[in-house]
Amino acid sequence: MATHTEQLTRPAVRLRGLTRSFDDRTVLDAIDLDLPAGQFTALLGHSGSGKSTLLRAVAGLDHEVAGSGRLTAPETVSVVFQDSRLLPWRRVLANVLLGIEGNEAAHRARAALAEVGLAGREEAWPSELSGGEAQRAALARSLVREPELLLADEPFGALDALTRIRMHVLLRELWERHRPSVLLVTHDVDEAIVLADRVLVLDQGRIGLDLTIDRPHPRSYRDPLLGEYRERLLTALGVTEDHK
């Protein structure tokens, strides 16, 4: 436990004055942010609020975006996208192995697939998987690299409600076991409250609200104490009482 607390004090991601703009429209406006190592953070915002831009900047994927500011992130970063992005011409195991080599890599990939509940589907083609299974395979692909930082860009947005709840449980379990820093981008307030220990609201290119959710896990959607957090987040997102 002691080492864990110590880890929390060292930031995994550090943003200083991060600015990004598209065609003179400032999407991220001088953001300062520290994400402690091993913390599970959710980033909420409207569509178009720049939350994906922030994630892509941290992932180093914004090649042709104008911007300034300083940004430090760990060496090993994994990204889970909204679509599973499995290569259709590779079987599931080969997809998990994409980009890693070595003798024990296949062994680790099998273990990761078993961990997400896909043992036995190693030789299936991606087209044979359901949406939830494909996203599990994508999670296995990001885990097998043992990332220090896991970036997830609305990873459950394309799943049905029941599958989504199951994936929430799975993601939280995986985090408990591997303890990467997580930055989960979502527009689903309930998803953020149930999963994350800290929720950020991105509004007009700035962090509008930084909320620590101090409730034990596993959390239930029906926990009345979470309602208070939901209110505050919805208010920060500009959803007032008459909208609900």
């Binding site: 994927l61 994994s78 990204v79 996208f81 290569l87 011409w89 980009g99």
Partner: peptide
């Protein structure tokens, strides 16, 4: 999106051609 995936997974130029471009 597959090009982006290759960047995220840290593929080398050669790996990218062999594992994504050619197939």
């Amino acid at each position: 999106r597959f090009v982006e995936l290759a960047e995220v997974q840290g593929l080398s130029g050669f790996q990218f051609v062999r594992q994504i471009v050619v197939p």
